[in-house]
Amino acid sequence: MQTPRRINDPANSLAVVVAVVLSALLFLGQALFIVPAGKVAVVTTLGKVSGGSRLPGLNLKVPFIQSVYPFDVRTQVKPEEFATLTKDLQVIEATATVKYAVRPNEAGRIYRTIAGNDREIYPRIIQPSLLKALKSVFSQYELVTIATEWNDISALVERTVAEELDKFDYVEVRGLDLTGLQIAEEYRAAIEQKQIAEQQLLRAQTEVKIAEQEALRYDTLNRSLDDQVLYKLFLDKWDGQTEVVPALPGSNASTPPVIVGRRS
């Protein structure tokens, strides 16, 4: 007859210990998670966002009940090719490169209301506001103005995009560049002619201002040259040897202004 295995058999005890250790490791692996640098994590409990954003480093969660969704908070660079109409109904094409970053403390609200991952942030948050700002700004200017004041308009677009996104407070705009402006060839010649005309007008205006300043300077000088001033100027320049003596200040108007004499 087979002898029954005793409950306190060492083999059974070892198996129990191994099972307990493996269960503990599995539980610990499910409870711990690491958030990499440059990211934050949103933790959900049974599908509902709980707590604030988890910062980079080692973090804890409840195994099998809580889930983790990472969000990148580093600066993202996204080029957007666009076409829009100007005030004079001309089509322009260009590229708007926007630089933005998710606000770390807003990751939970983004997950709850708009985007469940990083890939959805640009098309659902950035792109609509960017295209709206581009259309709004360029529709205020004629094509010639846009081409000649490109840098100023680029700065205006950046401010408009930032203001639009600040309404929702999800992301921070860190820069915007407009490049690759494309316009119809016939309008390039018109723009160049306008620039040449503006430069010629500016040069003419500058020359007029210089002439006016010179005339004012001479007029002021002429009005300030009375007898006493002339006499003082003469004395400042006189070498003491030349026999040229001006009339004294305050003398009769019929007296010659300059007396030329000879040494005896």
Rank of each mutant, 00 (worst) to 15 (best):
A24S: 11
L25Q: 10
L25F: 13
L25E: 08
L25V: 13
L25H: 11
L26I: 07
L26D: 01
L28P: 10
L28A: 15
L28S: 15
L28H: 15
G29S: 15
G29H: 15
Q30T: 11
A31Y: 13
L32F: 15
F33V: 11
F33I: 10
F33C: 11
F33M: 10
I34M: 12
P36N: 08
P36R: 07
A37K: 08
A37L: 09
K39R: 13
K39L: 07
K39C: 07
K39V: 03
V40T: 06
A41T: 07
A41V: 07
A41Y: 02
A41N: 03
V43R: 02
V43D: 02
T44H: 06
T44L: 09
T44C: 07
T45Y: 04
T45I: 01
T45M: 05
L46H: 07
L46T: 05
G47V: 05
G47W: 05
G47M: 06
K48C: 01
K48P: 02
K48R: 12
K48V: 10
S50H: 14
S50R: 14
S50F: 10
S50L: 10
G51K: 09
G51W: 06
G51F: 09
S53D: 09
S53Y: 06
S53G: 12
R54K: 14
R54W: 04
L55K: 11
L55I: 10
L55Y: 07
P56W: 04
P56M: 07
P56V: 06
G57V: 04
G57I: 07
L58C: 11
N59G: 10
N59I: 04
N59K: 11
N59R: 13
N59C: 09
K61M: 12
K61D: 08
P63I: 09
P63A: 11
P63M: 12
I65V: 15
I65R: 13
I65Y: 14
I65C: 12
Q66Y: 14
S67G: 14
S67W: 12
V68Q: 04
V68P: 02
Y69E: 12
Y69C: 10
Y69N: 14
P70I: 05
F71M: 01
F71W: 00
F71Y: 05
D72E: 12
R74I: 04
T75W: 05
V77Y: 05
V77L: 08
P79A: 13
P79K: 10
P79F: 12
E80I: 08
E80Y: 09
E80C: 11
E81N: 10
F82L: 07
F82C: 03
F82D: 02
F82E: 01
F82G: 01
A83Y: 01
A83Q: 06
T84S: 08
L85H: 03
T86L: 00
T86S: 06
T86V: 00
K87R: 07
K87T: 00
K87N: 03
K87S: 06
K87Q: 05
D88C: 07
L89C: 00
L89N: 07
L89D: 02
Q90F: 03
Q90A: 03
V91A: 03
V91C: 00
I92A: 05
I92L: 11
I92G: 04
I92Y: 01
A94I: 02
A96L: 05
A96W: 01
T97A: 03
V98M: 02
K99V: 05
Y100N: 01
Y100R: 04
Y100F: 15
A101R: 13
